[in-house]
């Protein structure tokens, strides 16, 4: 007897009532503390950039879908998440057209041209950041000092400052005059240091990340294996220097990247084993770029590179059918 009326589709088959919209709202909520912290730390310019980025992303998605006569999916909040993440990757005080150009690039070129939500092969916000970083490097690396650090300083020092990563890089290579005591752990945790606007306040980011893991919005495997790999690599190469390792973990874009950007659903592997490999790859690349390449920070490039490897990892780690025999060459 032949069975008819059966649709054969690839997994996952189990459906839950959780919608994309619900998940994206959870992510927005988890990102909120870091956003609030950035406005406290950098003042009004941070708020301007966040607003410009989110509005551009939502508007770009809406206009593109109207123009192409597609179903308008702005209501799923994914454009808002992209906008927030993009804004968090821009230094406060950058001109307003930076988040606008980035938002249009992220939504139209990276997301919609490849088929919209779920079909993009790279994280839209990160790709846009990379494009902005390469195109207008001078603007993208002009990190302003936080309001608290700038107080009591005049001139250039009050406008821009080196990120803690620059100092830590000197410590790592053993340059003269560099010392761990120049970088305060507490300042790093609270975000009282120079950097792009959303990455500085580590407490807010960790809080948001843990919330997402507890709510099962994201899987713990990617952030844990990514942060863990960076920690192990720094411990091994610095001769178990705990102070340096802790500071490296808490500086740059690692926390923002590990919790919010590497865990993007459509650009990270679907299998558990694959996620561990993906996170470890991100961590390893980040370490290599930070320690040996010419850029001080490599979080976005590391994640983008692993985004491209995701189909390969998925293929490697795809579960075998029950009863399938491994072929012996």
């Amino acid at each position: 007897m032949q069975i008819k009326n059966i649709a054969i589709t690839p997994s996952p088959h189990v459906r839950s009532s959780v919608s994309t919209r619900r998940l994206m709202q959870e992510v927005c909520l988890a990102l909120a503390p870091a956003g609030i912290a950035s406005v406290i730390l950098f003042g009004a310019p941070a708020a301007v950039i966040i607003a410009a980025s989110v509005i551009t992303c939502v508007l770009a998605e809406y206009l593109y879908q109207r123009l192409m006569k597609q179903k308008v999916t702005v209501g799923d909040w994914s454009a808002v998440v992209t906008g927030l993440l993009l804004a968090y990757n821009i230094p406060a005080g950058a001109p307003v057209w930076i988040p606008i150009v980035g938002g249009i690039f992220a939504i139209i070129i990276v997301k919609q041209l490849f088929g919209g939500i779920g079909s993009n092969f790279m994280n839209p916000a990160l790709t846009a950041r990379a494009v902005l970083f390469v195109s207008w490097n001078a603007i993208m690396i002009k990190y302003p000092q936080t309001v608290f650090l700038a107080k009591g300083r005049v001139g250039l020092d009050a406008v821009s400052g080196a990120t803690p990563l620059a100092e830590l890089g000197k410590v790592f290579t053993g340059a003269e005059g560099a010392s761990l005591s120049n970088v305060s752990l507490l300042d790093l945790l609270l975000g009282n240091c120079a950097g792009v606007l959303g990455e500085t306040c580590k407490i807010a980011l960790i809080l948001g990340g843990v919330y997402l893991i507890v709510r099962k919005v994201i899987d713990w495997r990617i952030p844990v294996s990514m942060i863990g790999t960076v920690a192990v690599m720094y411990l091994l190469t610095s001769g178990f220097n705990l102070g340096l390792t802790a500071r490296e973990l808490l500086s740059g874009g690692l926390m923002l990247g590990a919790f919010f950007m590497a865990t993007d659903y459509c650009t990270s592997p679907q299998t558990n084993k694959g996620r561990l490999i993906f996170g470890a790859g991100c961590g390893l690349l980040l370490f290599v770029i930070r320690a040996y390449a010419s850029y001080p920070e490599g979080c976005s490039f590391a994640i983008l590179f692993m985004n491209v490897c995701t189909p390969l990892i998925d293929r490697w780690t795809a579960p075998r059918y029950f009863g399938e025999v491994r072929k012996h060459g």
């Binding site: 494009v131 390469v134 195109s135 207008w136 490097n137 603007i139």
Partner: peptide, 11 residues
């Protein structure tokens, strides 16, 4: 106009 430097590179 601020030139978009990525256009001068291969990407």
């Amino acid at each position: 106009y601020q030139p978009m430097d990525i256009m001068n590179k291969v990407p």
